[in-house]
Simulated assay, not measured.
Amino acid sequence: MRNNEKFIKNWEKYRKKGKAKYILTSLIVLTIGYWSMITVLTIAQGKELNQITKYSPVFIGLITGNIIMLPINWNRNEERYHKLLQDK
């Protein structure tokens, strides 16, 4: 029950900002995170940063996946939010 209350409180903040801002902000944060991980992985392997393009297909795949999944996650969270409010 505590997790549900926390979810409702947090989701209300996201809802106020809107779907577009949620998707854009999440995409930016995830992109920076992925790029950082790929950079660290390249350095850890002892390779030059100019060889980072080796991971371009992975990076593009992750970003594409997020572009597809973030609107789906928004809709799932909206459904969960409304269901939890009805069950109160």
Score class of each variant (00 low, 15 high):
residue 2 R to G: 00
residue 5 E to A: 08
residue 5 E to L: 12
residue 6 K to V: 06
residue 6 K to S: 04
residue 7 F to Q: 01
residue 7 F to C: 06
residue 7 F to V: 02
residue 8 I to H: 11
residue 8 I to P: 00
residue 9 K to Q: 11
residue 9 K to V: 03
residue 9 K to H: 09
residue 10 N to C: 05
residue 10 N to T: 10
residue 10 N to M: 13
residue 11 W to D: 05
residue 13 K to Y: 06
residue 13 K to G: 07
residue 13 K to C: 06
residue 14 Y to G: 00
residue 17 K to A: 07
residue 19 K to V: 01
residue 19 K to T: 03
residue 20 A to R: 06
residue 25 T to V: 15
residue 25 T to C: 08
residue 26 S to I: 02
residue 28 I to E: 05
residue 28 I to M: 10
residue 30 L to Y: 10
residue 30 L to W: 11
residue 30 L to P: 03
residue 31 T to Q: 00
residue 32 I to F: 11
residue 32 I to P: 00
residue 32 I to T: 02
residue 32 I to R: 00
residue 33 G to Y: 09
residue 33 G to D: 05
residue 33 G to V: 01
residue 35 W to H: 08
residue 35 W to K: 05
residue 36 S to F: 15
residue 38 I to A: 03
residue 39 T to W: 15
residue 40 V to I: 15
residue 41 L to N: 14
residue 42 T to F: 00
residue 42 T to R: 04
residue 43 I to G: 06
residue 47 K to S: 14
residue 47 K to P: 10
residue 49 L to F: 12
residue 49 L to I: 15
residue 51 Q to L: 12
residue 51 Q to C: 13
residue 51 Q to Y: 13
residue 52 I to R: 10
residue 53 T to W: 10
residue 55 Y to N: 00
residue 55 Y to H: 04
residue 57 P to H: 07
residue 57 P to S: 05
residue 58 V to Y: 15
residue 59 F to W: 04
residue 59 F to C: 00
residue 60 I to A: 07
residue 60 I to R: 02
residue 61 G to H: 08
residue 62 L to H: 02
residue 62 L to W: 12
residue 64 T to Q: 04
residue 64 T to F: 07
residue 65 G to A: 05
residue 65 G to S: 07
residue 65 G to R: 06
residue 65 G to M: 04
residue 65 G to Q: 08
residue 66 N to T: 05
residue 67 I to R: 04
residue 68 I to G: 05
residue 69 M to A: 13
residue 69 M to Y: 14
residue 70 L to N: 05
residue 71 P to T: 11
residue 71 P to N: 11
residue 73 N to D: 12
residue 73 N to K: 14
residue 74 W to R: 06
residue 76 R to S: 12
residue 76 R to F: 13
residue 79 E to A: 12
residue 80 R to E: 10
residue 82 H to L: 15
residue 82 H to D: 10
residue 82 H to G: 01
residue 82 H to V: 09
residue 83 K to R: 10
residue 83 K to E: 14
residue 84 L to W: 02
residue 85 L to P: 01
residue 85 L to R: 08
residue 86 Q to E: 15
residue 86 Q to P: 07
residue 87 D to M: 12
residue 87 D to C: 03
residue 87 D to P: 00
residue 88 K to R: 13
residue 88 K to H: 09
residue 88 K to S: 14
